[in-house]
């Protein structure tokens, strides 16, 4: 099987380039990450992140034949040759397929992804009804791989101002949490031309999310709540 992989080492390369690889030992059921690990045996300088190998940790997000995804859960059988593998778009490349996730994490920190409670905290726990808990389904499962945000054209255009689908999904997760008491502040912080409203419902985020989540719906839910509050 043929591969074309993005290579760039800022210490030795002037510019990035695509390097071709051939893998002979392709067995049924292999995932792209298995192939990358075998290619790394051929060429130990190839750099990429991985950890859990089962789509849980979100370390191996990359652009595979033009679409973002996790290498560990992308079957080789479904990929057209040569398989073009590039780093996730619009994040600084540290080396080869390894990107600097800091801009992405900054967006996450910006939405204050933690419960804010103003009342005195109870001694044991903050209770929540099963119905209220259900409202968080489809939001808390995010593994922060960055596939959605880096596939979003609004992020490519305004990476420093638009918060991106992953962070906005988390903003919705805390706005909709019945235990959170900073809803007003959270909504006020998002009422800005860039942070939330650069989303044009392009829905690349929904297409690429390896966990099947729907950040576009979460973004629209935030807008609906904002409208209700403003009436």
């Amino acid at each position: 099987m043929r591969f074309k992989i993005y290579r760039y080492n800022p210490e030795t390369d002037k510019e990035p380039y695509m390097k071709e690889y051939v893998l002979q030992d392709v067995r049924p059921g292999m995932m792209l990450l298995d192939a990358l690990l075998l290619l790394k045996e051929q060429d130990s300088t190839l750099g990429f992140r991985c950890s859990c190998r089962e789509g849980v940790c979100g370390s191996d997000g990359m652009n595979i034949n033009g679409t973002n995804g996790l290498a560990c859960i992308t079957p080789l059988s479904g990929l057209k040759e040569p398989v073009e593998v590039r780093p996730m778009p619009r994040l600084p490349v540290i080396r080869d397929l390894i990107v600097d996730m800091e801009p992405f994490y900054k967006q996450y920190r910006d939405v204050k992804p933690y419960l804010t409670v103003k009342d005195p905290l109870p001694e044991v726990e903050l209770k929540q009804s099963p119905e209220d808990r259900e409202k968080l389904d489809g939001m808390y499962e995010c593994i922060m791989c960055g596939c959605c945000t880096t596939s979003c054209p609004s992020f490519w255009w305004n990476p420093d101002k638009f918060l991106g689908p992953a962070a906005l999904l988390q903003a919705a997760r805390f706005i909709l949490d019945s235990r959170d008491q900073a809803t007003e502040e959270r909504l006020d912080a998002l009422d800005d031309p860039f942070k939330l409203f650069r989303c044009h419902t392009i829905m690349n985020c929904v297409q690429v999310c390896p966990k099947g989540l729907n950040p576009t719906k979460a973004i629209n839910d935030i807008k609906k709540i904002m409208v209700k509050k403003s009436l």
Binding site: P193, F194, L196, K223
Partner: peptide, 13 residues
Amino acid sequence: MSAPGLQGLRPWI
């Protein structure tokens, strides 16, 4: 508070 014409929610509505 954003500058006039550069808000988020109002223009969207």
